[in-house]
Design a protein around this nucleic acid. Structure first.
Lengths: 234, 234
DNA sequence: GAGTACGAAATCGTATACGAAAACTATGGT
DNA sequence: ACCATAGTTTTCGTATACGATTTCGTACTC
């Protein structure tokens, strides 16, 4: 592992290294929202100087994963219902488009794979395993949009998912009732694709699928009077 | 002017300065596609060192305005029919969504302003003034999406427009026949909005408006056997 | 006791410097 | 005449250093 990293180090710039390292730590939750990213500290951790770290952080800022304030420092972009709404809405749009554009390129093997994943998701509901459910959910949708022929749109989708991952979205999204609906909608989506439905219908369905998740969260958040908005600080 | 810049310098980081300066030079065409951005040279021009320039360029890379290659250097993102297609397709999606989300917030004053702009665009067609036409076109669409309540989507729209600007898109887009259609479609869009049409219909219309421009270009490009793909070099 | 002012510590921002990689040029061989 | 190769130049990549700014803690005043 360290070996692989070292080998890679030879061909990859340190700034790239830092970017990847920090990004994955944000996405996997090692650095959770609000966490203060002190340049010097990260630089030391990664065994590089501050310049590449700074550069990496600026790039992550552009992706919305990091919040950067002049002369103050960088923090992992915070959890905030409004941001969640923005992100989900944007994702519903770009993901819907990506799925529609992918649809004609999705083969039987892909559908079979997606079905297998969806079946596993059903199991997760039995054993109540939200973490695994969330991961599988990403796998499922990856199958749907991974063939998208427009790399710009695909990139936007990935950014959205990363954003959600960094927001530890499973805490948001795992509304049990909604999860059951979700797997049903997945099956419906697959059938729509299999049946060669129009891109427009597929797009609508994909979009609605995500919107529904957002709505479920909003409804719950309103009901429980927002347990999540632990505003800014870490 | 220099005065204003100097005053601003006091409160704005040099990296920010560099970012803004380079960005505007790309968007306004001072640095045209393929132009080589030599760090040291830009640094000298702006009176700063290479570090902030490098940072700025990395940020511009994230926005797709700059292409950056390890150990080789940065160039202004090139003109390339494929990229144009990707950008336009993406823009049609996000702009369509932005317009639909804005629509309920567009007031009579906005519509009037848009009409005035559109009238001017008609004039530009008489006097054949593509540059002004392009600028007005942006103004027109700004009215349509500027009220978009989702800043993420709005940001994506802006990035798309900047991208097109950097691609000197008027050379692409100003297909005379298409320009006439375009102003008509603008009027139709305004009427749709005035009549309180469903967001869905507005989105479709806005999206189609842009797709049609793309199609017109593609048709022309196919006909003239691509005069534009002056591939990479500057 | 609360609020303000001052000083120390932490952290950021950027210039400078130097090593490394790529691009270019010139020279020699076939 | 053309290709390969070695040397030179350009340009990038990053470490280090230091000044600037903010933050935090402490003491002082009202």
């Amino acid at each position: 592992m360290t070996d692989t990293a070292a080998t890679a180090t030879a061909t990859v710039s340190k700034s790239e290294q830092a970017y990847t390292a920090i990004k994955s730590r944000i996405v996997d939750g090692t650095y959770s929202p609000g966490y203060r990213l002190v340049l010097a500290k990260i630089a030391e951790d990664l065994g590089v100087s501050v310049v590449p770290v700074r550069e990496a952080i600026r790039r992550l800022e552009a992706e919305g994963l990091v919040k950067f304030e002049r002369n103050v420092g960088a923090t992992v972009a915070g959890i905030d219902p409004t941001e969640y709404l923005y992100t989900m809405q944007t994702l519903s749009i770009v993901e819907g488009a990506a799925t529609a554009l992918s649809a004609p390129l999705i083969g039987e093997a892909d559908v079979a794979r997606a079905r297998a994943v969806n079946a596993e998701m059903r199991e997760c509901l039995q054993h109540f395993d939200p973490v695994r459910f969330t991961r599988l959910n990403q796998d499922f949708h990856s199958v749907l949009f991974e063939h998208c022929p427009n790399p710009h749109i695909l990139d936007l989708v990935h950014r959205g998912w990363n954003r959600l991952a960094s927001l530890r979205s499973s805490t948001f999204r795992f509304v049990p009732g909604r999860a059951h609906e979700s797997v049903d909608e997945h099956e419906a989506l697959l059938q729509l694709i299999e049946s060669g439905a129009s891109p427009d219908d597929i797009e609508k369905a994909a979009r609605r699928h995500r919107s529904a998740t957002l709505d479920a969260y909003l409804a719950q958040a309103a009901a429980i009077e927002l347990p999540t908005p632990q505003t800014t600080q870490q």
